[in-house]
């Protein structure tokens, strides 16, 4: 493609007349100069990027934290605040061991009401859907075995069809109506009124089933740990 683009362009100056190569033989440029030029350019570029990063990173981080906060409160209705617990050596811990990297640990967000009692637990999980990975955050009550809410964080499901898993209010509302776990996905209108049924979206059965599957798998993964007791919050 390179050669094409240069061939298409009007030649404005013949190569010999370039200011950069007025020396008759270009090979005179020393390797040192080549390396030095690139190194200087690289350092300048790095500095520029680092400077802008200093400026934008707090904004980006704040936005991300805010999005997470909104999502957690959305799937845990009734929570007044929440605490993040990390899974460290099979136990839930509000702090990470020294020097550990945050991204490497699985975590749950435990929501508490005004009085400090636990409301429920939020976890996020991604699995492949119809197109690509679907990322979901879900809130559930480990004691009552009920779902409290679900929000799709990321999805590339077919626009106009699979994307109803987060655009179709009727579908989403079912997850906030406190269905019992584990969920069962049924064809719309054919349910028997069981408390764990979720009506799937017409024409997007796979995407609908992906959502219920992710929720069930997430619950299955965390339930044993959480049934031993939801961690208490130390802070008031």
């Amino acid at each position: 493609m390179n050669d094409k683009s240069s061939a298409d362009t009007l030649v404005v100056t013949p190569p010999g007349a370039e200011p950069a190569s007025q020396e008759p033989v270009e090979k005179n440029v020393s390797t040192f100069r080549l390396v030095a030029t690139l190194a200087v350019a690289g350092i300048l570029a790095g500095m520029l990027i680092a400077m802008v990063n200093e400026h934008t990173k707090p904004i980006i981080d704040a936005y991300r934290a805010e999005q997470l906060r909104i999502a957690v409160y959305e799937v845990l209705p009734g929570a007044a605040r929440y605490t993040t617990f990390y899974l460290v050596d099979g136990e839930l811990n509000p702090t990470l061991p020294d020097g550990a990297k945050e991204v490497e640990y699985k975590r749950v967000y435990v929501g508490f009401n005004e009085e400090g009692g636990p409301v429920g637990v939020a976890v996020s999980r991604g699995e492949s859907g119809f197109q690509d990975v679907v990322m979901i955050i879900l809130g559930f009550d480990p004691v009552g075995g009920k779902l409290t809410g679900m929000k799709v964080l990321e999805s590339k499901e077919t626009p106009g069809l699979g994307d109803k898993i987060f655009k179709d209010k009727a579908f989403v509302d079912q997850f906030f109506a406190g269905p019992e776990l584990p969920l069962v996905s049924v064809k719309a209108g054919s349910g028997k009124g069981e408390p764990n049924e979720i009506d799937s979206i017409t024409g997007a059965t796979i995407s609908s089933k992906t959502v219920t599957r992710i929720i069930n798998n997430a619950v299955e993964e965390w339930m044993p740990l959480l049934q031993q007791g939801i961690p208490e919050d130390e802070q008031p």
Partner: peptide, 17 residues
């Protein structure tokens, strides 16, 4: 900056920019 960029590394320099 074309004056300062040797021909041999120009592509790399452009990519860097």
């Amino acid at each position: 900056c074309k004056r300062f960029i040797p021909r041999e590394v120009r592509i790399s320099a452009y990519i860097l920019v």
